[in-house]
Structures are given as C-alpha cells and as structure tokens.
Design a binder for these strands. Structure first.
Lengths: 346, 346
DNA sequence: CTGAAAGCGCTTACAG
DNA sequence: CTGAAAGCGCTTACAG
C-alpha cells in the first residue's frame, strides 16, 4: 500500500518493459534488446529464454522510447484539404505506399482549407518529429516552417507552391490544362465561354483562370467579365452562377468548370435545362463516362502526384538534392462528349 | 575536433532542447518546461527571458520525449482497406474530426484487404503506443490484438466484426439493407434477380447475400444458383458475370450489386445493352443521380459510421463502458430510377 | 557471448 | 518563484 501510494498513474496500461523481460528471463537488459532487434551474439539457449519471457509477459517494444533514442520516427505527415474529397484519396494512398516502401507510417491531417489549421497541424506534426511533411497548402505564408525545414524536416509542397520560402513542390500544369480545355471548346465553335472557379487567391484557381484567358486571347475571343466567376465552390454559389451565366442576353454556350466540385454542381444544373450546354471540367469525375453525354475533362493523375511528392520527400531524407526542386506534371484531356457539343441555337 | 569524434549522428537535425534554452536564458530546466507548458509560477521577467531564448534558438518541444514520460500519445490509428476508395474518404475524415476534438492525431493505414498487412499495421501502431485503434478488418482472426487490448489500447472494429475476440464494433445493417433493396426489385415485378457480391468470406458480402436470399424467400421466388456470384470485385470478373447472367435461357431481369465497385462495373456493362435491366446497388455512387435512369441504391452513411466508431473509441479511453458493445446502423434506400424499371419483355 | 552505465528530451515529485 | 534529481523505456558505446 505504502509503495503504491506514490506510484504515478499506470503508463501505457502497465505494459511490461524490457526490464521486466530481463528480470523474468534472468538476463541483462541489453540481451533482451539484442533478441528484440535480432542482433547477433546471443546463444540459442539465451534467446529461447528471452523469447519465452517475452511471450509470457506479452511484451511489445515501445517504439516511442526507441524513437527518442534513435532520432528518426519513421513517420511522415500529410496535410491536405479534405480526406473526403475524391481527389485526395488516391493521392494519400500513393504517399502511403511510398512511405510503406521506406518503412514509414503516414499521419494524415485535413486543413479544411483553413490556413490556421494548416499551421497548427504542421507544427503539431513537427513537434512529434515526423521525418518529413507533404503539404497541400491552405495558407499563403509558410515562413513558419522555415526553422523546421532548417532543422531537417524534409518538406514537399503539393498542388500549390509554398509561400515565402524556397521548398520542393509538385504541381500540375494548371494553366496549360485549362488552356487546352478551353481551346477545345473554342475549336468546337464556342466563343462565349463561362469560367467558374475557386477562390481567386488559391493558386490552382488563379492558374486555371490564367489558362482560360490565354486560350480566349489566342483565339481572338473577347472575354466578358460576367462570364468569369471565382469564389467558394459550395453547391449553392456554383448553381447560382451557372444559372446566371446561362440567362439574360448573350448567355454563354459553354462552361469550363474549375474543379471537380464545380463540375458536379454544374452538371446537376445543366441536367435540368432544355438547351444542351457544352462543358469541360478540370479533374476527372467518377462515372463521368456513363453520363449522356459523357463528361469531357482535363484530368490530373492524383496517384502520380502523390507518388512524385513522396519520392521527392524520401530522396531528400536520404540526403539527395540540395536545392529546392519544382516538378510540374502534365494534365490530360479526356474527350467524352460534353465538350464537343456545338453552341446551342447555331 | 576531439570532442566531435565521439558525438553520435545529429539527432533531429541537431535541434535545440530545453537544456539549450535553459542555458541561454540562464534558468533551470524546469523553468523552461513551465513556460513551454504555460504552467503558473514564473515571473513576467523570467518568462520573457525564456521566450527570448526559445525564439532565438527556434526551439520546439519534442513531443516524442513528452509522450514517453506522460504515457499517452494523443494519437489513434485507423486501418482501412484502401484510402483511395470513395467509401473510406468520408469515414476517415469523420474519425479525424472526432480525434481532433479530443486533441489527437490520426495515423492512417491501408490493409489492401490483406490480413497479414492488417496485422503488421495494427501491431506497428501498437508499438508506437497509439491510444486507440479503429480497424476495418481484412482478416478473420484478431486474437493477435488480445494482449494489446488487455494492455489498454482502445479498439473499435468497423464494417465487419472482430474475429475470435470480444470487441466494440460498428456495423451497417447489411442483411436488412440488401433485403430491402431486393424486395424493392421484387415489388417492381422482378422474379429473376442476380446478385453479384464480394468474396464470400467477407462479412459484409455474406450478410448482403443473406439479405438477398431472405427477400427472395419471403416473396416465394426461387433462387437459381447461377444468379448468385461471389468473388473479387475487380472489373473483369464483375463484367463477365454480369454478361453471363444476362445471357442464355432464362436471363435475369434485374441485378443487385453488392458494393459500389460492382455497381460501377455493372452500370458500364448495362450501358451497352439494348434491353433495360433493373439495378439496385449497395453503397451510393457519386453522380448516381445524374445518370439516366438514376441509380437506385441502398446507401450507408460513411461519415456517421466513422463518427460513431470514434465516439465509441474515445468513450472507452475516458473509461466508460466495460463490456464490448455492438452498434448497428441502418441503411437507406434511395430511389432514383434504375431500381424501378419493369422486367424487360413483359 | 553478455551486461552495467550513460543518455535521448522531456515531466514528475520534491525541496528550497 | 525556482531548480536539482530521478525516471519514462529504450539504444549507444563500452568493458569484460
């Protein structure tokens, strides 16, 4: 009783430690460590005794303690916008697979597109001493990560570049992809083309808009600013803007949807219309091939993006490149029908 | 030089520790700890000096060390089949949100439906001393987790029950949902209904098949075993089986698809057929409402499942229920058109 | 082949 | 208000 009075609360549910195993097996601590880590220099008989004690006690090495001593946690963090978004699932899985190949676990976090939450998550992961960090940025200022990167946390930005610091980045050719998609609509006779995108301060949204303007300019098609709408991609706003662009005098005859959320909402609105309206969306959508017409999209390869980022990360952890690298991956136009509809009424 | 000769490899990139901060601020270690953890009992002036040293050195507390001393890691593990599957994204996000509410991080792992990999992942997470584990089982024998659970790792099984041990579980009403879906087809005049499901040893697959048989029996509709196909849900097999059931004498007039992967493949096959074939799928599919006809499904609420599991987990961590609990969540039939098609040729 | 001592970077339990 | 000592559970660097 007197002994337990000053005992701290049971740690890890009072799990046995190497010390307990050593006592039970009648050997030294280091010998247990040798057996647990399959190090050489233990007789068959000693090993047997130790293994017996391990099994009897249900011992499992505490990797937290190991990590503290070794200096590497064999874990990487991934901060993305929303794990529930179909774009991030495959990306996350790809990062996980590469990490697994390097014996590392993956800690996932959703920023919910909130810069404060991104920062909070990133720093929490750094405090846990993840070896590396893959960040799909929500914020625009990443100087808060400078000391962490300097201290050795390998960091790769994905989808959008880092703000205010030099760092590796894996991006899609957003401007080029959007330009190709809009050029495709122009080639099918459209001149009045709407663009509905995400908030303008988001890098990908701005780049895609740039691609749109570029394609229009190259075709000598003037852009009426009422055809451009940037903002939150919730269903309500997107539906309202879609309807607006299709109404009034001089409505658009085609739409370019800035991401998969926009595409889905726009499709729902268009499904209820009498006139066919051409549509090309950025990002592929599941079942897009089964709709009538099929949905023409500018697709990104989420898994490839994730794999590329993770490869870059582990390359850095193995001490490879010195300077920050920026990788740009191509997009792919997938023609399925919706982007080849001719302008209505012509 | 002589001094560095025996220095171990730089740990955590030679990050400053509390000791370094204490030395620079000219205070004791404990005082730094007090400031870092916002504990009371430090003068304004002392705190200022400590904070100055922290900023100058770029100190960030090492949570690995903290965890070792405190006994709880404030992290939970989630093992699922495949993060890239659209069903698991929202589920994972929901678990993350609950964890976040409890100040915990989420470590994700995909088992790829491989029991060995599930085990390996689960034990790796236990070795890192996660506080709790949410497991979507790939294997059928979970006795390997018994010592871990006994040692205090809160564990909740999701989607399928644990094998060989008593543990909390959150399940969907798989049999009831399938039964309702098949009854819906029967109510629309079908008698020859095909069932294409996952591998028969998978709990959800077996339960859904049970629901199918139950509905058929209740309607007095005999089941021809050629209408039932259980196996891997890759596109090739599912497409082949779909075609087979629609061919030959006495083809099926309706299909029940055992999960979202099956539904998608079946839809692709049916899209190329002349005769309309009725279809009800288990699990909702994105854009299912936009297809013509819309896809009638038996939907599960992935986010609700995740939230329920996480709530159970943290309830247990806070020392609540003693006995293992099993929660069964209802499914919901969503009528959109494909399930209401009448039998072809009648 | 084996093990005692020191230390990873913190927190705990004291004592001043 | 402040800090020295002990300890969390391992691994490292030695010595026998």
């Amino acid at each position: 009783m007197a002994q337990t009075a000053h005992r701290p609360a049971p740690r890890y549910g009072n799990r046995p430690t190497m010390k307990d195993v050593a006592a039970r097996a009648g050997v030294g601590l280091k010998t247990v460590s040798r057996v647990v880590n399959s190090e050489p220099g233990v007789t068959v008989e000693t090993e047997r005794r130790v293994r017996e004690a391990i099994d009897a006690l249900g011992f499992r090495r505490n990797d937290s303690a190991r990590v503290l001593r070794k200096g590497r946690t064999a874990s990487v963090g991934l901060i993305l916008e929303d794990l529930a978004d179909p774009f991030y699932g495959p990306l996350s899985r790809a990062v996980e697979e590469v990490a697994r190949g390097h014996g590392a676990l993956l800690i996932n976090g959703s920023s919910a597109e909130d810069p404060d939450r991104e920062r909070e998550l990133a720093l929490a992961l750094c405090a846990r001493r993840v070896d590396g960090l893959v960040v799909i940025p929500a914020g625009e200022d990443h100087r808060y990560l400078e000391p962490e990167i300097a201290a050795g946390v390998a960091t790769v930005f994905v989808d959008r570049p880092a703000g205010g610091i030099e760092a590796d980045a894996v991006l899609s050719d957003n401007a080029g992809g959007a330009r190709e998609g809009v050029a495709h609509l122009l080639a099918h006779g459209h001149r009045r083309i709407g663009f509905i995108g995400d908030l303008p301060h988001i890098h990908t949204a701005a780049e895609r808009l740039r691609g749109y303007r570029q394609a229009m300019a190259e075709a000598g098609a003037p852009v009426d600013e009422r055809w451009v709408s940037m903002g939150p991609t919730g269903a309500e706003r997107v539906a309202r803007e879609t309807v607006r662009m299709l109404s009034g005098p001089g409505p658009v005859t085609a739409l370019f949807a800035g991401n998969n959320r926009v595409t889905v909402t726009a499709l729902r609105v268009l499904a209820g219309r009498e006139w066919p309206v051409a549509l090309v969306g950025f990002d592929d959508v599941e079942l897009g091939d089964l709709l009538r017409p099929g949905v023409t999209v500018v697709a990104q390869d989420a898994a490839l993006i994730g794999r590329t980022a993770a490869d870059l990360l582990f390359g850095r952890l193995e001490g490879r490149p010195a300077r920050a690298r920026r990788v740009e991956l191509p997009t792919r136009l997938i023609v399925r029908g919706s982007g080849e509809l001719p302008p209505a009424g012509e």
